[in-house]
Amino acid sequence: MQTDIEEKGYVHEEVLTSTDWVAEHLNDKSVRVIESNEDALLYPSGHIPGAVHVDWTVDLNDQLRRDYIQREGFERLASRLGITPDTTLVFYGDKHNWWATYAFWVFQLFGHTKARVMDGGRLKWQLEERPLTRDVPKFSATKYRAPERDDAKVRAFREEVLRHVSSRRSLVDVRSREEYTGQRLHMEGYPNEGALRGGHIPGAVNVPWSRAVNPENGTFRSAEELRQIYLKEQGLKPEEPIIAYCRIGERSSHTWFVLTYLLGFPHVKNYDGSWTEWGNLVGAPIER
């Protein structure tokens, strides 16, 4: 049943699944449910039966350079998950699908478009008292063949962001108000995710990512509510190029998902260099 999602008026509702739909497809061999969380202990503590785990720090990121995995790494990952390019992937996770949309976004760099997000994520599944298990499923490894990573469509790099700023195009800073205004840089013990300067990229509007979700059950707000926030309140124009950013690109992947699929904006990119790059970049313009 996808009724709840259909009623919310999204432009591309096909990228969302309901918890009901997932429950009905737990044994569907053409579907692979993938959990991705901020807390790496959550999956082993209990997950949707049959779900596999993607750890954003280990599986999606290059372990040496600051970059995502290349084609070979993605092929290894996808093969280990037992999927093929025809498998329908359903991502879900904690923090209102923050990390699920991040994994979804990385999978789009390799063109796996048969991908969805379970609306409400882990929170809604648990609120509905659906089953969780600690049994790790075993799927036969596949030989997934992926194209080279294509960053052009959904990923922005700093040079493009600089041009974007010069052209006075739209940016969305999805961090907290304290980060946006430069009051907060980083916490003690975590300077590796900090920056030398605080503030935001000139011209960026501030819409903390979590405004797009209903906090009580983690589902996305309706299209009308999202339009109220991003179009009416912030003045974003759907047809214009938009770049979203946060600190390292994970929160902004959530907003990228909302703008691209739920509201149907055709030209949205995620700047994963985000504030940890921009706030350390010599000579980069900053506003407070």
Binding site: E38, D39, A40, D55, T57, V58, M187, G189, Y190
Partner: peptide
Amino acid sequence: QNISMGKGMGLTA
């Protein structure tokens, strides 16, 4: 090292 800044902040706190 496989914890995010947010998670690390909370645990350190």
